[in-house]
């Protein structure tokens, strides 16, 4: 049973990367709304006020870059823990990284909030794979 991915949130300071992913997801009809953010503070502000349509089995999917100026991905997750309970639907968080740094992968595996660790940029194959693995 495929779950409806209602909202996708992209957090990456790189305009080009966010544009690429938004374009890809639209093309594949992955998610109903796709919202890009260019820093963690803006993303946190919006997520605090988020009130997604509660449809049975709806999901909020967050794609989070690690390496950003100012607050990085790890710090975002710390902050996010505190507001997470106010979000009333299922949440899946994917770390997007440009490197296969084993330290980062280890850190990701140990963090319960993280669904998986992915290398950017994502392509069609990646989207199909995560839909199959985590969004059914």
């Amino acid at each position: 049973m495929i779950q409806k991915v209602t909202s996708i949130v992209l957090i990456d300071d790189d305009l080009a990367m966010n544009y690429l992913h938004k374009r890809l997801f639209s093309k594949l009809q992955f998610g109903e709304t796709i919202v890009p953010f260019y820093n963690c503070n803006d993303a946190l502000k919006e997520l605090k006020n988020l009130n997604p349509l509660i449809i049975d089995n709806s999901i909020l999917v967050i794609f989070l870059d690690i390496n950003m100026p100012g607050m990085d991905g790890w710090s975002f997750l710390e902050e996010f823990k505190t507001i997470q309970t106010s979000i009333k639907c299922q949440i899946k968080i994917f770390i997007l990284s440009s490197s296969i740094n084993p330290e980062d992968i280890k850190k990701a595996k140990q963090n319960n909030f993280i669904t998986d660790y992915l290398i950017k940029p994502l392509n069609e194959e990646d989207v199909n794979s995560i839909t199959e693995k985590y969004l059914q």
């Binding site: 300071d13 260019y38 100012g70």
Partner: peptide, 14 residues
């Protein structure tokens, strides 16, 4: 390469 601000706010490479 460490930066505190985004490219949009202040230009630079850290």
């Amino acid at each position: 390469f460490k930066r505190l601000h985004s490219e949009q706010d202040y230009v630079g490479h850290g």
